[in-house]
Computed example of a mutant assay.
Amino acid sequence: MYEILSRVWGSGAPNFRDGWAVVLEAEWGSDEFARRHAEVAGLLSETIQQILALPEAQRVRYSRYFPQWWTAVVQPDLGWSDIGRPARVLVAQETLDHLASAADLLETAMRGSSAAPSGSNLEELAESCRSWLEILAEMPDSELGSSVRNEIVAQITHLLWLIEHAELFGVARVSREANVVVGSLTQASTMLTGVDAQSGGRWKRAFLNLVAASVVLTAGATQLQTAIEAGSGVVKEITQVVDGITAE
């Protein structure tokens, strides 16, 4: 959030509209602009949720700025095309400073979680996503209902989109969306019907590959190896769920 607003603030654009278009690298009024700006609003929502999870003193201190941060993102009372309001007046420096301070605090408090991942290599996660799209495209309705399958495909497609735009929206956003996909696939695992040993084995391998890529991104390879060796934590829990799928 801080990086995005800072870029708009420092874009030198003559109005809010052009400032956002430059930073989001999307044409004003286009579908892609709407999609990217909506993602920014989602980042603000997640930031607010994370601050609300902080100890009381910190929560109270930063929650005072929620309205200012929200106004900076949507500007409900001002015209985005008004030349008399350059992008630099989108947000006050003080408001940016408080947002930066909150971001630093959250990164320290949540280091190694999906809110502040330790990893940065996204290629393994992207490859896992592409493999899942192939698996789901080949699955008949008799094994997994089309409505469930289509929803997961949409989530994975969105995750790939976030990976492609990680420089703009951040690795943390990718990590959190990966958790959503893992959760959806966990639920879908309990809904599989008529899956033969070969298909079941492919599903399990792909599932564990996705979990491994997600954990490495969030906590780092060392933590993943430790969890595997100890047979504990999220790796053990997810493995137990996957083991409930039709045996290979």
Results as ranks from 00 to 15, higher is better:
M1W: 00
Y2T: 12
E3C: 01
S6A: 10
V8R: 03
G10K: 08
S11N: 05
R17K: 10
W20I: 00
V22I: 14
A26S: 06
D31E: 15
F33C: 04
R35Y: 11
R36I: 04
Q49S: 11
Q49R: 10
E56Q: 09
Q58W: 07
Q58D: 12
Y62V: 01
Y65H: 14
F66P: 02
P67A: 03
W70I: 08
T71H: 13
T71A: 14
Q75L: 03
P76R: 09
G79S: 10
W80K: 02
D82W: 04
R85E: 11
L90Y: 01
A92Y: 11
A92C: 07
L96S: 03
L99H: 01
L99M: 09
L106G: 05
E107S: 13
T108I: 14
A109N: 09
S114N: 12
S114R: 11
P117W: 05
L122Y: 00
E127W: 13
S131D: 14
L133Y: 07
E134Q: 12
I135E: 09
M139Q: 15
D141K: 13
S147V: 15
R149H: 09
I152T: 07
I152R: 04
A154V: 05
E164A: 15
H165G: 02
A166M: 08
E167L: 09
F169M: 06
A172L: 01
R173C: 06
E177D: 10
V180M: 06
V182G: 01
V182L: 14
T186M: 12
S189M: 08
L192G: 05
T193S: 14
S199F: 12
G200T: 03
W203V: 00
K204C: 10
K204M: 12
L210W: 04
V215R: 04
T218Y: 06
G220Y: 02
G220D: 00
L224G: 03
I228C: 08
V234Y: 13
I238H: 09
T239V: 10
D243T: 07
G244M: 09
